[in-house]
Simulated scan of single mutants.
Amino acid sequence: MTDHDLAIEAAGLCRSYHTRTGWLRPQRKTIQAVRGVSFTVGRGELFGLLGPNGAGKTTTIKMLNTLLLPTEGSARVLGHDVATDPVEVRRRIGYVFGGDRGLYERLSALDNLRYFAELYGVEAREQLPRIHELLESVGLKGREGERVEGYSRGMRQKLHIARGLLHRPEVLFLDEPTIGVDPVAARELRQMVADLVAAGTTVLLTTHYMAEADQLCDRIAVIASGTLRAEGTPTELKDRVRKLDVLEVEVHEAAGDEQLRTLRATPGVEQVTVETRGPVDTVTVHAQPSAGNHGAVMAALAGLRTGKVTSREPTLEDAYVSIIGASGATGEQ
C-alpha cells in the first residue's frame, strides 16, 4: 500500500499526563495513556480500535483528530501532519462520539445542524439542501423541528452522525457511536456506517460490542494499557483461538477462588473467565481440544450446582478476551 492509498498513519504515538496526588504532601505522577502505538488505515477502509475502558482508544483518536498533541511520535491524516498542519486535517475529518455531549438540547435538530454547518464552513447556498439530505439519510426527516431535549438516545446518535457528515469529511472517527442505544437503533446506525464506507468514506471505529466490530470492520487493532496488542482482520484474530475449544458452564452459585485456581491449573486449559448474569454465573473456559478436557473441567467445578453446558466455536469476543488476558491488562490506568 503506497502513501497515496493511506488515509491514516500513526507512528509511535505516545501521550503522557501529569497529575498531582495527595494533599498534605502532594506528589507529581506521570500517567502514560498511550505508549508507542503504530498502525495505518487505507482509504475507504473501516478500521476498528478495540480495548477495555482506559486502554487509550479515545486518547489515540483525539491525537489523530488534532484535539490532543502527541507527547512523542507522529501521525498523518490524508497526508497532513496532525501536529504541524491541524487546520488541513480538521477540514477533512468528522468526529462522532457516543453520549449526550456536543448538541444544544434547547435547539431543534434543524437549528443544531444550521449552527454546525456555519461552524464547519459549509457554503450558505449548500447548507439547507445538505441538512435535509442528511436528515433523510439518518431517518430524522419530519422530526427536525423538535427540540433535541425530547430526543431518544438513538435519535441523538443519528443527529451526531448527521452533524459529523455536514462538511462531507473524507475520514470519519466514530467513538462508540452505539453505546446505550437500543438494538433497533443500533442496527440502523450500523447500516448507516456500512453505507458510508461503501460510498468511499474512511471510518475509524471504537466499540465495546464485539459482534458490531466483527460485522463492520475490515481490520481491527486491539489496544490495552496504552499499547497495541494485536492487529488483523476479524478472521485473522479469531484464528488465534481457533485451535481452542470454548466450553461455557452455567453455575448457580459463586465459584470459589480455590475452584477457579484448580480450573486454571487443569492441563489443557488456557484461559478462564467468569461473567455474572443475575443469579447465574457463566464460566467460560478456553482449552486445547483433547479427549478428557471437558471431563477435567467439570471435575474442577465439582460441588457446585451447574446448569447448561455448551461447547461452541470461538468468536471475535473470545479472541479479544484471549488477547487482553494474555497482556495482563485491565484497562485501568
Rank of each mutant, 00 (worst) to 15 (best):
R153M: 14
I179V: 15
Q157C: 04
G139P: 12
H208Q: 14
T202E: 00
V184D: 06
G164V: 01
D218A: 02
P177V: 03
V171D: 03
N112T: 10
R147D: 09
T206K: 02
Y151K: 01
L159Q: 00
G200Y: 08
P169E: 01
E146G: 11
L159E: 00
M192C: 07
L140P: 10
A211N: 13
P177A: 05
R187W: 08
V197T: 15
K158R: 08
K141W: 12
Q127P: 01
L216R: 05
V184S: 12
Y151E: 03
C217W: 03
R187M: 12
G121N: 11
D195F: 05
A185V: 04
N112Q: 01
V184Y: 06
L174E: 05
G145H: 09
K158C: 02
Q127A: 09
L205Q: 03
E146P: 13
M192G: 07
D195S: 03
M192F: 06
R168D: 12
E123W: 11
E144I: 07
M210G: 06
R125D: 14
A186R: 15
V148H: 01
I179P: 10
A194E: 11
E136T: 14
Q127H: 10
L134R: 05
T206W: 06
V203L: 10
E176F: 01
Y209K: 09
D175E: 07
L172V: 12
V181M: 02
P169A: 02
F116R: 05
G200Q: 01
R147T: 13
E126R: 15
A117C: 03
L172N: 07
G164R: 03
G139M: 08
H132K: 13
R114N: 14
V203D: 00
R187K: 14
L135P: 09
R143C: 09
H132R: 15
L204Y: 08
Y115T: 00
A194H: 07
M210F: 08
P177F: 01
V138W: 01
L205G: 08
L134D: 10
D218Q: 15
G121L: 12
C217M: 14
E136D: 15
Y209A: 13
S152H: 09
T206E: 10
G180V: 01
V197F: 05
R130E: 10
T202K: 04
L140E: 00
H132W: 11
Q127S: 10
L166M: 03
E133P: 07
V122R: 13
L159K: 00
S152D: 06
R125Y: 12
M192I: 12
L166V: 05
D218H: 14
E136R: 14
L135S: 04
R156T: 04
L172D: 04
C217T: 11
K141I: 09
Y115P: 00
L204R: 10
P183W: 04
E170M: 04
R130P: 08
T178S: 15
R156Y: 00
A185W: 02
E212R: 08
Q127W: 04
L134T: 00
R130F: 07
L134S: 08
P177R: 04
E123N: 12
